[in-house]
Design a protein around this nucleic acid. Sequence first.
DNA 1: CCTACTGTATTAGATACCTAATACACAGCT
DNA 2: AGCTGTGTATTAGGTATCTAATACAGTAGG
Lengths: 131, 131
Amino acid sequence: MFAINPTDPAPIWRQIEEGVRRLIALGALQPGASVPSVRDLARDLRVNPNTVARAYQRLAEGGVLSVKRGEGTYVADEPSVPKRAERNEALRDAATRYASTAIAVGAEVQDAVEELQSAFERVAREHRRHA
Amino acid sequence: MFAINPTDPAPIWRQIEEGVRRLIALGALQPGASVPSVRDLARDLRVNPNTVARAYQRLAEGGVLSVKRGEGTYVADEPSVPKRAERNEALRDAATRYASTAIAVGAEVQDAVEELQSAFERVAREHRRHA
DNA sequence: CCTACTGTATTAGATACCTAATACACAGCT
DNA sequence: AGCTGTGTATTAGGTATCTAATACAGTAGG
């Protein structure tokens, strides 16, 4: 699936939440597909089942996953996508954080852009592999 | 100086540390210049003095700031800059985080790049203002 | 000397997060 | 029915962060 980054200050449940959204956005997880069970993913990520459960619950609330209690969890038939406003806000926020640290380490815009493009390819490729 | 982002999962002391590095990298804080006192900056950022102190101490350890106890804190005469290796690693890490969330919200590379460029300008401009 | 400002240190409390260990309720399958 | 695998809930303990309040130590200036 994906990996947890221990150096990322973001809480693990949020990393999981984002990871699932990523897989769906990339098409690695199609609508109706089943996602790993809470315990399976927890073992896979070397993480506590409660943490995975928290991420799944948030995704279910957000209409991204569909939970069938006792049976399993699936990608919703029509996975809800963030509205344009929220989407732009999130993107802008993330861009600000990236730009801030880039400037702090003395990088130029060009460096940051190149590194970003590499990251895009790398993340996408990594996901299509384990799909 | 700069602002604290409450939505940023990074701890406040790290945001302060990065903020100071940013100001120096942009030339808004020249070598030898005095930085606000612990209490002043704390009041300015609406934050506890201990949190600011922690950031200053780390920056002093890193050779970025020079502390004169009882007198004040100043930008080091030759502010140490991260080595190329660490710098690239940090940039790469930050780029990965940005790319990850960008993909998660369904953004394309072009969108992410544009937003990044805007963020660069915005952050730089914001700093030169309050310099 | 005294006051006012520096950075520093300590203690305590609150909150968020993660882990671990148990349970419980539901679905599917033999 | 019994077993196994689902998601869910609860309790406890540990760690990191932030805040608040209070001191202590050093410097500058009236």
